[in-house]
Design a protein around this nucleic acid. Sequence first.
DNA 1: GAGTGAACGAACTAGCTAGTTAATAGTTGT
DNA 2: ACAACTATTAACTAGCTAGTTCGTTCACTC
Lengths: 219, 219
Amino acid sequence: MSAQPSEAPAGGPERVRDAERTRAEILDVATREFADKGYTGARVDEIAAKTSTTKRMLYYYFGSKEQLYVAVLERAYTGIRSVEQQLDVEHLDPVDALRQLAELTFDYHESHPDFIRLVSIENVHRAEHLERSAVLAGLANPALEVLTRILRRGHATGQFRGDVDPLDVHMIISAFCVFRTANRHTFNVIFQRDMLDSDRREHYRTMLSDLLLEHVRAR
Amino acid sequence: MSAQPSEAPAGGPERVRDAERTRAEILDVATREFADKGYTGARVDEIAAKTSTTKRMLYYYFGSKEQLYVAVLERAYTGIRSVEQQLDVEHLDPVDALRQLAELTFDYHESHPDFIRLVSIENVHRAEHLERSAVLAGLANPALEVLTRILRRGHATGQFRGDVDPLDVHMIISAFCVFRTANRHTFNVIFQRDMLDSDRREHYRTMLSDLLLEHVRAR
DNA sequence: GAGTGAACGAACTAGCTAGTTAATAGTTGT
DNA sequence: ACAACTATTAACTAGCTAGTTCGTTCACTC
C-alpha cells in the first residue's frame, strides 16, 4: 500500500485520517475483546492498544466503555437478521423450509462464536445494556414472521399441527444452538465430549431438525 | 468433629470463634456475589463487607479471589448430583421415568438460578477454573447412569428406540433448561416473553418432556 | 494561503482493587 | 496456668483502570 497523501481523487482513498475507518476498526477490535473477556474483563487500554489508533479516539468516537460495548452489541445483533432472509419459504415444502431454517441458524451460531459469547455475557448482565438500546425494535419480527409462514403452510398441507407456537419453535432452535456453543466448555470438561467437534457436526445438525419436525408434525 | 467447645453455658453454642461457620458464611456470600456480578465483576472487598467477618479471613481461608471462586463453583456443582438420586428408576415405567427425570431437572434449574449463572459465567471463562478442579471427577456418571438405565429399559419394553445416545438426551434436557433461565433476559427484551413467567411454567415443563419422548420413542 | 473544525496523540490522574503486614485475642492441650 | 496454636482485626500498598487534559496535525474552504 503506497501512501497517496492529500490528492487522492480517483484511484484509491489512501486517506491518512479517516473517521469511518477508525471507528470501524475500534468496533472490530472491541467486539473481539468484549467477546473474549466480557464487559467487565475487557480493558479499554487493551482495546486501544490493539487498534492502530489511541485510547483518546475510542472516547472521541464512543464516549465511554459502556457506550462502546453497546455499539458492539448492536452491531452483533443485527447480523443474525440476515439468516431468515436467506430463506425462500414460498418455494419450499414446509418440512424442507423448517429443516433449512434450523440448519441456517445452526450454521450461523457455529460460524459466529463472538456473537454467542456476547449474548451470554449480556445475559450475565441481565440484558441491562440491550434493554436501553434502540436497535432491538424490529429484531424479533423477521425471525418470527418466517417461522409463522412456514408453520401456517405446513398446517394447510396437513403436515403440521395447528397449535404450534412459532416462538416456542424458535426457542427450541435457539436453545439447542446456543447451548451447543455457549456451554461447550463446561460440558466438555464434565462429559469429555466436544459438542463442536466436526465429526459430530452432522449428527447434531440432523438431530435438531428431527427434533423440530417430530414436534410440529401432525399426529 | 463437633466437639462441645469449652463450657458454653447451657443455652446454645455462643461461639465467638468458629472456623467452620466463618468459612461457610464466606462461601455463601461469595456464591451470591460471583453469581450476581461474575468472576471479574465481583469485588473481594464487597464480598467481605457482606460477611460478618473481614477480608483478611477470606484470604486466610481461601488464599485468593480465584481459589474462593473455585470453591464456590465446586460446591455449586455438587448440588445438581442430587437430582438423579431422587429418582427411583426401577419402579417406574420408562416413559414416566424419563418424564420425571426431565421434570426434576427442570425444577432444579428453576430453583437454583445462582448455579445456572455460575455455569454461564464459567463458560464465558472457557471453563478454565472448572478444568483445574478435582470435583468434577464422577460428576458425569450419576447423570448418565440413570439415563442409560431408563433408555435401556425403555428399549427392552419396545417403547424406545435402541440407538439413542444417553448423553444426547441429557444435552437436550440441559439445553432447554439452561436456555430458559440463562438466556431469559435477552430473550425477553427481544421477544417480550418472560420464559420464567409462572403462567407458562407448565407449558414449558410439558413441552420438554414431550420433546424428549417424541425423540426417543420407537417408530 | 490562511482560517477552521475534525481527527488525532502523549502523558496525566483520581479512585479503585487484590492482596499484605503486623499485631492481637480466643482456644486447646497438658 | 501456660505455652502453642488458631482465628481475627484494622490499616496499608503497589499496581491497575476508566476517563481527561491539552496540545498538535491534517483536510477542506473561501
